[in-house]
């Protein structure tokens, strides 16, 4: 086993017995490795099995088959008491925050360390330190009801940090928040990752979240992991065609693209190019003209930032008798090229 690996999921299957006849296979033979310091994103549509898979990391969901290793310790073989100890080192935050309405903000945090070795005074000091860290010390005596969604999530993060975890699991933690608040929470998660060397496992159905903070991604569909790789590679050079389809369909520009593709004439061929906006690629279209005497028409182009790198997507049109050798040549340059046809 890789010594850098902090979390290893080995051939995880999760089956829910609906009734005597039917069973729901929520996760199928999923394996993945998360290294220390990763911000590891699990992306996919709702119902893809993301939450179920991630809940096996702290055994909130026991896998039907497969093993869960955290720090080289197989959690599935632990006693109930040992598992509770192991869980303290895995913090978790949720879409709906899950704070206790009957306790103040400070009490909500103290709650998670009540049975720790700390004295009562130390527990409260710790809670206040954490609240200061997430910028909510002034709210320590109010009840969750009085806070906004973003503030509640910051309290939930402070609570998850109280046991000094090595891992933080974020289950759609920004999905109930507006875009601006989402960004402040993502910035906070990034800060935890760099300042506390916290490993983060983040489930999201929002590609923008994955692009912003994850260094690695696993793409899930129908309970299976389609592909796992570095974020940039997933978005620029997906290996699995289903990953490519998922990424385009889930993206905001997809509707625009579909409209444009729908307008293509019988004599033209459309290609979507995805490449890093570096100096070498600036002359891309000119190179095509020089090397193959084709004149690509640019129909649409957009550039976005993924993991701090600029990625351009360009939809070009070529005439139907284009030289086919240009496709492998472009791929050679690290450009992902996909022919686009009208949807049936």
């Amino acid at each position: 086993m890789d010594s850098k690996a902090l979390i290893t999921l080995n051939h995880i299957d999760v089956t829910f017995q609906q009734n005597q006849q039917t069973a729901l296979h929520a996760v199928k033979d999923a394996s993945l490795t998360i290294n220390k310091g990763d911000i590891y994103g699990i992306i996919g549509d709702s119902g893809a099995g993301k939450s179920t898979l991630v809940r096996t990391i702290n055994l909130l969901q026991r896998p039907t088959n497969g093993d869960v290793f955290v720090n080289q310790q197989n959690l599935t073989t632990l006693s109930a008491a040992d598992l509770r100890q192991a869980r303290k080192k895995i913090g978790m935050i949720f879409q709906h925050f899950n704070l206790m309405a009957s306790r103040t903000i400070e009490e909500n945090i103290v709650f998670s360390i009540k049975r720790s070795a700390l004295s009562k005074k130390q527990q409260h000091e710790k809670a206040q330190q954490l609240l200061a860290y997430v910028g909510l010390l002034d709210k320590k005596d109010v009840y969750p009801r009085q806070l906004s969604g973003g503030q509640k999530q910051r309290v939930a993060i402070a609570r998850a940090l109280a046991n000094n975890p090595e891992i933080l699991i974020s289950d759609e933690a920004t999905s109930a928040l507006d875009p601006k608040t989402t960004n402040t929470i993502l910035d906070l998660l990034k800060r935890l990752n760099s300042e506390l060397n916290l490993t983060i496992v983040l489930i999201t159905h929002e590609l923008s979240v994955a692009k912003k903070i994850c260094n690695k991604l696993a793409v899930m569909q129908h309970g299976e992991i389609l592909e796992q790789n570095e974020t940039l590679r997933i978005f620029t050079q997906p290996q699995n065609p289903e990953t490519a389809t998922f990424i385009t369909q889930a993206s905001a520009e997809n509707r625009v693209l579909q409209q444009l593709i729908g307008q293509q004439t019988a004599t033209e061929r459309l290609f979507l190019l995805t490449y890093e906006a570096n100096t070498a690629n600036q002359t891309l279209l000119v190179d095509l003209y020089q090397d193959y005497q084709v004149i690509p028409k640019v129909i649409y182009s957009t550039t976005e930032m993924i993991q701090g790198r600029l990625i351009t997507k360009t939809l070009i049109s070529l005439t139907e008798n284009y030289p086919e050798s240009l496709i492998p040549a472009l791929q050679q340059r690290g450009i992902q090229i996909m022919q686009q046809t009208k949807e049936a």
Binding site: R87, F94, H96, N98, M100
Partner: peptide, 10 residues
């Protein structure tokens, strides 16, 4: 969700 959070806290 609160019960789940408490379980996750050990």
């Amino acid at each position: 969700g609160i019960i789940e959070a408490a379980q996750a806290m050990g």
